[in-house]
Structure formats: structure tokens, C-alpha cells
Write a protein that binds this DNA or RNA. Sequence first.
DNA 1: ACTATATTTCTAGATTTATCGAAATATTTG
DNA 2: CAAATATTTCGATAAATCTAGAAATATAGT
Lengths: 100, 100
Amino acid sequence: MEHQDAAKKLAELGHTTRLAIYRLLVKAGPEGLAVSDIQQALDVPGSTLSHHISRLVNAGLMSQERQGRVLRCEACFPALSALVGYLAEECCVEQQGCCD
Amino acid sequence: MEHQDAAKKLAELGHTTRLAIYRLLVKAGPEGLAVSDIQQALDVPGSTLSHHISRLVNAGLMSQERQGRVLRCEACFPALSALVGYLAEECCVEQQGCCD
DNA sequence: ACTATATTTCTAGATTTATCGAAATATTTG
DNA sequence: CAAATATTTCGATAAATCTAGAAATATAGT
């Protein structure tokens, strides 16, 4: 993962509402959730929610697929793994033994 | 880990310079690095660097300890683990099998 | 075509953050 | 104590972000 890309993903996750959205999606798994489900769970105005969702999508952390009137949202699980990997990458290269 | 705390940590890591600082520290391991080492590696003005470091410290992602004229910086490794754990927590609770 | 539902786009004001020069503080050494 | 080194605090400006109401768009059902 590129440095800038990782920073962007982390920044987007670093907002209370967006982190909550993302965690709902992670919890939901591949089935995903409709925007309306998320709205109901988090109780935020539609326009605000839409703004945050579009940022998460833009950062490559989730995707949306239309199913009729509903937009189904799903977390991008590989992005999460890559991000976590980036954070721990080269952990303690200078001195072995602190990370497992 | 508390939700707000996790969001804060992620937000602080979500900045190019701060992420670079943090990764240098993760790479350095428990030995840590002096502020001047970081400055040399990243080539940012002192005041800017100090600002970012203080944010990382405030977020509980790193600590500083004075050793003579030098301030030694060290990553808080437990915080990293807890953060990663928080992100993956309850992954796919609704439907088993997507995460390992 | 009309209505209802789902969601986004537009817009604008309020708040937060980033940057960095200059001055201040802390510590060692001569 | 004075000078040198390491780092922070102050201050001010520029840029990005948050929030949410109102209007617009997309789809489905009648």
C-alpha cells in the first residue's frame, strides 16, 4: 500500500461517524447494509451521512451497489487488511523481538 | 478501546507527516528515535514537526522522554495493537466466514 | 404520468487543522 | 555565566472539513 493512500484511509476512518459506519459494515460482513439501515442505526441527517459515505467510498474503504431503490454498502475487506499490514510493516526492523 | 479514542488515534495517523513519524518509530522499535533524528529523516521545519509530534503524544500513540538535551521518542506498541483490534473487532459477526 | 421512497447534490456558515517563522525554554559544555 | 544545541510555544494566515436544510435525482409501484 502506498503511503499517501494509507494516510488517506486512516484519516477517513478517523472520524467518529465514519468509523461507526465502517464498523457497522465490517460487522455486517459481505451481506452489507443499505444506506437507510446505517442511517437508522446512527441517527444522522441524510445529507451528512451521504457526505461521510462518499468519503469512505472515495478512499476505497467501502463500495456501493444499487439494488432497486436501495443502495447496498459493503466494506472493502482487503483494504482493511492492507491498511493494518502497512501499520505494522517493518515493525522493529532495527531491533528484533518487540513484535510477534 | 473506546470508540472516540480509536477515532482520534486513526485521525492522527491519517496525516502524511504524522504517519511517516509513526512508522519511523515503529521501525525503530523500543530503542526509539530522537526528535532530531526524525527531523533529519523527514526534512520538515522544527515547529511543524513539534506540532505533529505533540498530537501523536496527545493521542497516546507515542511517548517522549528527555535524555539530556535530546528528547527520545518511542511508539506505544500496545496502542497500535489495540487499534488494529478495534478495527477488526466483531468482523462479520452477522455472517461467519469472511475473515480468518 | 403520479406518488412515495431512497439517496445524493448544492450551498453556506462554523469549526478545525496545517504550516512555519520568530521567539522562548531546557540542557550541556567551556 | 555565556554559548551552543535541541526542542517547544506563540501567532497568524491559508486551507480543509463538518454539518445540515433544501432541492434534485433515481427507482418502484399504482
